[in-house]
């Protein structure tokens, strides 16, 4: 990929930092002066992928804009754990309005900033909207689509943990097939979430023809920072969909957060790519191909697939989804399979 031009061996492009790199090639997260946009003391669960993803993204955006940044935040875990009165963890100007209106709130902020500039404010203050998958793919989708369609100067970031975690792990339109949630219990003839539903929001974003759409995971910081930085270099509507494992909701060990994100990408279940004006312009290739079982097994939300009698057919259907992604996006290096 174009943004992995740095070739180091021991310290690779995969670690957060690298003492051997030139300062300007170092990641934002490696910096001693990083802004910690989401400060310590927040009340996210242990090993929260969303807290991690949000700090990665907002820190990168702060770097990219010289801290001239405002964030609007949907209701959800990220909002609740970061701003319970009387403590906020945010170091950026930040507003929470509602669950389903964040893209629109951001549009309003961007409009205000545009007028301020017109009126002589020298600062170029940029706007990010952020929310979980529920606030993005479901309840906030109308406002999101409107923001995209108008090509408002907003970067919308979805932190996708594949269910309504804040309310107690209910299904969202981002919940994958077979996954157990509180509203898709592993009971009956088709346990867990059903197959054949759900919404591919990055593709829908692309269908709006907006300048930039990307997916990323908390397992590849450099890629994530590159995409946020790139997004902030572009005007108009932009969308980044970040895969953020939820230890609590997925029934996974808190220390496996980054690992699960990595396995989701390496298995092909979560394709990592970027697109400009509706066309895919880059994909993150799979580096160490793994079968989907390796990703599914550490998560109790899939435990019903691996009981005394494993649901071989269901697992095969999930593998087929991964395989389809691999084909569609060309996720394997030529000859790597």
């Amino acid at each position: 990929m174009s943004h992995q031009e740095i070739k180091f061996y021991q310290t690779g492009t995969f670690t957060v930092g690298n003492r051997l790199l030139e300062p300007d090639q170092r990641s934002v997260q490696a910096s001693m002066e990083r802004t910690n946009s989401l400060n310590s003391g927040h009340r996210a669960c242990q090993g929260c992928g969303e807290a991690l993803g949000a700090r990665y993204a907002i820190d990168a955006a702060m770097r990219a804009t010289g801290n001239q940044l405002i964030a609007a935040n949907a209701t959800g875990c990220l909002e609740v754990f970061s701003t319970p009165y009387p403590e906020t963890s945010w170091q950026v100007p930040w507003i929470h309005s509602l669950f389903g209106n964040t893209a629109a709130v951001a549009t309003g902020i961007a409009a205000a900033m545009k007028i301020k500039r017109q009126k002589g404010d020298r600062r170029d203050v940029r706007v990010i909207a952020q929310g979980g998958d529920g606030g993005t793919t479901d309840i906030g989708f109308g406002c999101l689509s409107g923001m995209w369609e108008r090509n408002d100067d907003v970067l919308y970031i979805c932190y996708d943990n594949e269910a309504y975690m804040n309310t107690g792990v209910q299904r969202s339109s981002a919940t994958p097939p077979a996954a157990r949630t509180a509203t898709t219990m592993p009971v009956g003839p088709e346990p867990g979430n059903v197959f054949g539903q759900g919404k591919n929001v990055p593709r829908i974003a692309m269908a709006h023809g907006i300048p930039y759409v990307a997916t990323a995971t908390v397992a590849d910081l450099r890629d994530l920072e590159y995409k946020v930085t790139k997004a902030m270099s572009v005007r108009g509507a932009r969308y980044i969909h970040i895969f953020v494992p939820c230890p609590l909701g997925w029934g996974a060990a808190s220390h496996d957060t980054v690992k699960l994100a990595r396995l989701a990408k390496e298995s092909g279940l979560f394709p990592v790519f970027e697109a400009e004006y509706g066309e895919v312009t880059g994909v993150s290739k799979i580096r160490r191909p793994v079968p989907v079982e390796e990703y599914l097994k550490p998560q109790r939300r899939y435990a019903h697939l691996f009981g005394k009698q494993p649901h071989v057919e269901t697992i095969a259907k999930i593998q087929a989804i991964a395989d389809a992604n691999i084909r569609r996006y060309g996720l394997l290096e030529a000859g790597a399979h």
Partner: peptide, 15 residues
């Protein structure tokens, strides 16, 4: 430790 900054980066709590 070879100062790869991974621990520094991956901590969700900036700890």
């Amino acid at each position: 430790c070879f100062e790869c900054d991974n621990c520094y980066g991956v901590c969700p709590d900036n700890a």
